[in-house]
Nucleic acid binder design. Structure first.
Lengths: 396, 396
DNA sequence: GTTTGATTGTTAGTAACCTTTACTAACGAA
DNA sequence: TTCGTTAGTAAAGGTTACTAACAATCAAAC
């Protein structure tokens, strides 16, 4: 053992032959022992996933896809049918040799998911969907100047109406809320709603008796984009509205952050040339460049079309400047924007893409894809639904 | 279903009630079925992890920690002892009622790990460690103007010497290489070594017959910092040398990126006020502000101590500017620097910390911790060793 | 029209795994 | 000495997934 290695070469050279401290950090979560029972439920999930992804598979198809034997698959499927999660569709139609297969599918219409989006101004929206994320029913409620516990009450009332409207057993409730939301579904901070440390998930779960999952709206949107929008395994979704937020998917998983605040991009300062003063006190925050109210004000002040296009391009450039380090550091493959299509979809988007490309290393793949979401205004509720499907069925 | 939902509220408003495409993205990797055999090997890993983390546990201690019964633990431990991975230390000394426990430990000296660091200028370094990451032996070789297959040959020769020097069976070989390295250990691009699509991992594995793992040097360093340096679950490690690279730990896991290029921060443009021209062709890349040769040139040109301090602070500010969006987006809890302590450790570090704090939302935790690594020049080889321990034993 | 080969799904039996229950060994305290 | 506690082992049992074998069914070849 070399206690104090001699400095060789011109390379990095801070010293100390590390006597590794006996404080290790583990990858595998504690208590994740695998009993046969847990193994089976894991395999159950695999079957569900496979069925979810492509309806109309036979038991034999599942066996090939999952890697278990036909016998085991038959057994698992029997369980799932008994639980009502899977149904038989009938015999396969196409002509091929051998015994015709019995096609299976998840019972897509047999359960409902309730999903809420609290991120609008003065409005809570909610939907009932089936297991595919198809919206079956919509409700909304105006919440002008409603904050604190009144706001929680309004959410609960909306939720009650949605649950009552559901035509099938409700699998669970997903909520996309503005602000910072921790793992347990407590809204740590949501200034617009006057919330601080509000245990929304617990409150709604207790009231409805249903499984409830609460997450940040931009994070939910990112999940939706990943699941229904075809986003890659490494992508960022940027939501532009009254404020600016983001959700990150890294390695196919949603990033939560050290203090559950991942995606809080709005108040990062952009560039080194000043800017407008932000509500947060700093100067040149991304929100001052990009938030819809400010952007609209600038567009209205513009005198001709060229000036308007320049304003949009400038906003896009600022977004690109702040995204470039993130794209470079994470090697993101995709940047997706969500917000008013008429404002974001044109010059702004193009400018963002061009700025990112010119400020990051042009890898052999020509930089990340930059595009608008195709999920429209339902992106948050769809993400909230994904949370339920993942949490309750393990699907996705 | 509302085909074209009416626009309500001033919120986000791009349209279309998403008919979700039947193209889903899954979280669980395909083919990850759990057979009883896999379940047992998983539990074996849990036992190893627990033993690794704190030596001197009894079978009963393990049972409590892992959550399996004493019977099962005894069985697993018998397997591990037979494989030579675990040894009995003798009876517990302290006096308490009941039968005295037989203490166990991983056979820490019974296996060796070989780890290489190819990231120095004109020098390859390698070490032999035990399972704790304690360095037992060092070798190095000068490689001035050695590139391409010659460089691979030099690596292989160094590796042979290290394997020959090992006093215990070699568990595996870890390599930290500059450049972009994919999952399979192929160096996609390492300009300094003249490598492009070099299947280093495969070549070394074939030559030595040992398990080999190759990864980017900064990524390896990040693993070391996470494992031995006490880094948090969400942290970035920035390596400053001839170039600038980084490794990211998100949710406790290393980030690989869409094209295996995560951490390539050196060629991201910083700020909006120009800068020096970079070798890559762009202007104002982080490397032009921060790389050691340029920094040293600026320091030598400085006339007095104040100017030198200002130069260091300016470099730190640039690093902070480019890290701020990353810290904000990922909500990182920690930023760790690796490189020449005399240059990075003082004003530069402070300036980086202050810049990050002033440009991100000051969350209730006062921003990320910013510090130097304590692992010194061995950080990359330690990370390479961690790769082997993780890959071969599942530890960490 | 019959045979052949292929495919599906089920039944029966087996091996692996973890658990429960029960036991022995070993020790401190009363 | 007795009691209570802790460590480790042994035997039996239940769950899980596997292999082997088979009936049902159909297309295609003969």
């Amino acid at each position: 053992m070399t206690p104090q290695g001699t400095r060789q070469g011109p390379g990095l050279a801070t010293e100390r032959t590390a006597p590794p401290t006996r404080r290790f950090a583990s990858v595998v979560r504690a208590g994740s022992r695998v009993t046969p029972e847990r193994a089976r439920s894991h395999n159950r999930v695999l079957v569900l996933q496979e069925l979810y992804r492509s309806e109309g598979l036979s038991r034999a198809d599942l066996a090939r896809a999952v890697g278990l034997t036909r016998v085991t698959i038959s057994d698992l499927v029997a369980d799932l049918i008994e639980d009502g999660l899977v149904i038989e569709l009938g015999l396969r139609a196409d002509a091929r040799p051998g015994k015709p297969a019995t096609l299976l599918d998840i019972n897509r219409k047999g359960f409902a998911v309730v999903a809420l989006d609290l991120s609008y101004d003065n409005l809570f929206r909610g939907v009932v969907t089936d297991l595919d994320g198809t919206v079956l029913h919509r409700e909304h409620v105006e919440v002008v100047d409603v904050t604190g516990t009144d706001a929680v009450e309004a959410v609960a009332a909306l939720l009650d109406r949605l649950v009552a409207a559901a035509q099938a057993p409700v699998l669970g409730v997903g909520v996309g809320s503005p602000g910072i939301v921790d793992d347990a579904g407590t809204v740590l901070s949501a200034p617009n709603l006057g919330w601080a440390d509000v245990p929304l998930q617990g409150a709604l779960a207790e009231r409805t008796g249903l499984p409830v999952l609460v997450a940040n709206d931009a994070n939910a949107a990112a999940l939706a984009e990943r699941t229904f929008g075809g986003a890659q395994e490494d992508a960022i979704l940027v939501r532009v509205g009254r404020g600016v937020g983001a959700g990150l998917i890294v390695g196919g998983r949603l990033v939560r952050g050290a203090h559950s605040a991942a995606g809080e991009l709005g108040h990062v300062v952009v560039g080194t040339d000043g800017g407008e003063v932000c509500a947060c006190g700093k100067t040149g925050c991304l929100e001052t460049w990009l938030a819809i109210p400010r952007l609209q004000a600038r567009l209205e002040a513009a005198e001709d079309a060229d000036t308007r296009r320049a304003a949009l391009a400038a906003a896009g450039e600022r977004l690109g400047i702040s995204l470039a380090p993130v794209v470079g550091a994470l090697n993101l493959g995709e940047v997706v924007l969500s917000g008013p299509l008429d404002l974001l979809g044109g010059d702004l988007l193009e400018s963002t893409a061009e700025t990112i490309r010119s400020r990051t290393m042009a890898d052999s793949h020509g930089g990340p894809a930059v595009r608008m979401t195709t999920l429209g205004r339902d992106i948050v509720v769809l993400g909230a639904a994904v949370m339920v499907l993942t949490g309750q069925l393990g699907v996705f």
